[in-house]
Design a protein around this nucleic acid. Structure first.
Lengths: 216, 216, 216, 216
DNA sequence: TATGAATGAGGGTTCATTCAT
DNA sequence: TATGAATGAACCCTCATTCAT
């Protein structure tokens, strides 16, 4: 009534990767713990050794997602490249990242709503539950903060370029949303073995948006 | 995929009675919703039409229990009988009530701990959950208040008797606890078809405690 | 033992609108029939007088969604406007439509996955069930066909413009996906009472993409 | 990859004491092996080095409980004191014992039901399991025998006193149950640092019951 | 049409228990 | 001895759906 055969027990990260994959196909709500467990050859009960509950697993996937893109974009944004070059690189990095990790990328796009919609604690929660939830809430907040910060980075390059006159006078907010919407959608339609590589796609998208920003 | 055959759908009270019975045998924690449902020929899911959850069911049973004895004792306590007569009647009513409804009586004795130990809400609770829990908490508090008040009634007759000198100078608190302990235990050992009737037992117990109170 | 207060009993369309709204907030899987029913002051059971089941309701919402945008875009696409003007009008119509009906727009974006993931009929299905399922499948197919056709319309204007040399030589597929991704995302971030109107946003987005297509 | 800090690894008795304490608060069914383990700074798995399973742990606690009171009362009952003195001492010893070890006392009161309700062996049990179960059953039986014998001791003094005419002619069974019920309840309401000491309480209760037995 | 009561089918989670380390 | 990882079995509860009224 216990134990796994052998094959090097699964790590927390293995689960994360598999979970992202399952989530991409089914969505958070339609995905069962059993589904995720099966993807790593465990039982649902075993997942609870690695994650407190389903919500925590989702959060971990999304944290991985934001780290994935954030770690790429943030250094570029912090560099002192001129706006056009900086934006081009940021777009390329973003799109490329999403094509390389479609599962996590798609989770970022589709499952954030689930993270927002999570039910608060009932008044009946034990102290331990409350503590755990507080931790969870803190991390959830941190996630949203980082995500917002991420958007700010794009917003800033664009604003800078506009102010310096190297970009035309677009509405910074709308342009950013437009661009990020296009990026996000990549995770929906991109197929690894398709006609074009992620790099080519990233290049094309960067090109499109930069052309769009060219001053008259 | 639905419906009950016929036989006049079960009422909330039917469930309560059956639940008390199952609880007496197994205890709250060891009793499953399925057990209770089976006792009224329903499925567990159906119970949720009548009670929000298992806790609410327990509370309802206990409320019925306190009402059972309270409704009997309170009028007697409010009467202007002399202390000895009043106490005698109260004891008889209490013990008799418990022998007549052993299941509910036993629940009162054994399951209150479960009612106290119920986990508070997690911080994740929805507003609806919170509202429901607040209602539940209110009723739970009311239950404890009524139970304490119940004990006060016994305490008062005894104090009155002692002060009037018709009872010996016992420690009111200890004597009350002793007496109520003896009563409560009746639900544990009384068997309906036993050697003695509930009335006989009630009579004997009343007699014992009143003799014990006789002044030197 | 029934009856709704007054307010002219709910129509199928009332339900559709309300359902889209609830879906936008919670997503299909997390939305219960009770949620939707509550939004139109009905009970869940009553919904089944209007829709065969939850899937059918989803499909109806999505059909409404595709009709919403399709009915606007198709006539424009069929007109003989020059590519640039035609595309500009199509973008404006699409974005404007999505801002005007954010709920339905968001459903189109987020819930299609649910429509794809629906589980097949159980082997135990009755003939009536099979018939209904067949009808449902047919309509579902039609939905996807129309949706693909919708994308083709954009693809065609762009191809035409490229071939005529009025647009630069973009990769038609990638550019279309990029553009539609940006559009879709509008349903996610657009807020009715925001700083800019839907028309302004639509105008800006059309402008951006057309500039991006300008030949060197 | 193990080891406890220092503090002289836990003994079987440490676990017993801690377990009784946890049981008092939560009840057997609501108590998890993890709860008990935590109370002695172990993990649940480690408990299995000391007790075959959860049931065995419960039995051990109850055995300790019956020994606690039995070892006190049995010698008194075996002495040749006159009935009134003997009963007085027995009551005092019983009540005092329960106030001194409330946790074990409460377990005796509340958890015996759990010991009775234990589920039988599954048909799939191994021979070793069957053997262990047989041992367990034997010990469980012995426990109940000793507990019944314990009650008999009280019954006998009372009968003897009645027969000798030093006690009034009470119904021996009912009086014994009444008295033991009152005793048992002490574990429920007694609080160590309360207004009265365990000895004072024991004295008062003994006094009450002996007065109650005084012949007319 | 509308609904209350009922249910089968899960889904998330907990828990006692096992085993390799 | 001690423990971490794993698991089967259950349990509470939810939900889509049905049917009699």
């Amino acid at each position: 009534m216990a134990r796994k055969p052998a094959e090097l027990s699964v790590s927390r990260d293995d689960i994360l990767v598999a979970a992202a994959d399952v989530l991409q196909r089914n969505g958070y709500e339609a995905t069962t713990m059993k589904d995720i467990a099966a993807a790593v050859n465990l039982t649902a009960a075993s997942l609870y050794h690695h994650f407190r509950n389903k919500d925590a697993l989702l959060l971990a996937v999304l944290e991985a997602g934001i780290a994935l893109v954030g770690n790429q974009i943030e250094p570029i944004a912090a560099s002192d490249l001129p706006p056009a070059d900086k934006l081009r690189q940021m777009i390329r990095a973003h799109v490329l990242g999403l094509t390389q990790h479609t599962a996590i990328g798609a989770a970022m796009v589709f499952e954030i709503r689930s993270l927002m919609g999570l039910k608060p604690l009932p008044d009946t929660a034990s102290d331990a539950d409350r503590k755990a939830y507080a931790d969870f809430s803190t991390r959830r907040e941190a996630f949203f903060v980082r995500r917002d910060r991420f958007e700010q980075l794009f917003r800033q390059v664009i604003r800078e370029g506009v102010e310096m006159g190297v970009f035309r006078g677009v509405d910074v907010g709308i342009f950013t949303k437009t661009m990020l919407g296009a990026h996000n959608w990549v995770g929906v339609w991109y197929r690894p073995m398709g006609r074009l590589s992620g790099e080519e796609i990233a290049e094309m998208m960067a090109d499109s948006f930069l052309r769009s920003l060219k001053p008259e």
